[in-house]
């Protein structure tokens, strides 16, 4: 079988390209520290999402050492918290989102960032991030979840630490998550 010289060159260049792509992702994971959504969030019973250790009553919690944990319930057709009341977190701290769904599959994507995960019933999606600047971020449900899917959106308000500590949704209120969740 004769393989033309140009064809051999092309084949070699193609393999180099492929290896290059894989190498960039390896570098992203190992060097730059890009973490993927994986199975660390554990599972829950979609019929009772707070029954297990893996998920808590939706709300913002201080996770110690200036870190925060945000538990979000995505359901037809709102995020709790997030939709009727914005999620408020301080800037420049590590924030870990835990998102799950008691009904159908949803999406949880924060526009303009690389926070982007599927929300699959029975699974808890866990994503850690740092919002460096204060500001308002928009959450979109990007998976079709029913007839009013297009209304499913929310907000994250990132504020300075001092403002966060002073506000009603600050750590003082967080000890009682039920009080913090208005809807």
């Amino acid at each position: 079988m004769e393989i033309h010289r140009f064809e051999k060159l092309w084949l070699a260049a193609s393999l180099v390209l492929i290896l290059g792509f894989v190498a960039t992702v390896v570098y992203g994971a190992v060097g730059a520290g890009v973490a993927m959504v994986n199975d660390d969030g554990g599972t829950v019973d979609p019929g009772d999402i707070t029954a297990s250790e893996n998920f808590r009553e939706p709300g913002v919690y201080e996770a110690g050492d200036g870190e925060y944990a945000v538990y979000v319930e995505a359901r037809q057709f709102s995020f709790r918290p997030g939709s009727s009341q914005p999620i408020e977190v301080p800037a420049d701290t590590r924030v870990t989102f835990y998102v799950t769904s008691p009904d159908v599959t949803h999406g949880f994507s924060v526009v303009g960032t690389n926070i982007n995960t599927m929300v699959v019933p029975g699974q808890v999606a866990r994503i850690t991030t740092v919002f460096e600047e204060p500001g308002t971020y928009h959450i979109v449900c990007h998976e079709y979840c029913g007839a009013a899917h297009h209304n499913m959106q929310g907000q994250i308000r990132v504020v300075d630490q001092s403002q966060f500590d002073a506000s009603a949704t600050g750590p003082a209120a967080i000890d009682d998550p039920a009080a913090e969740v208005s809807d």
Partner: peptide, 17 residues
């Protein structure tokens, strides 16, 4: 399913390769 919860990162990597 790169952004699906419940699937370990390693399997996603094998699939990507």
């Amino acid at each position: 399913q790169y952004v699906d919860p419940g699937i370990p990162e390693g399997f996603k990597f094998v699939s990507m390769t």
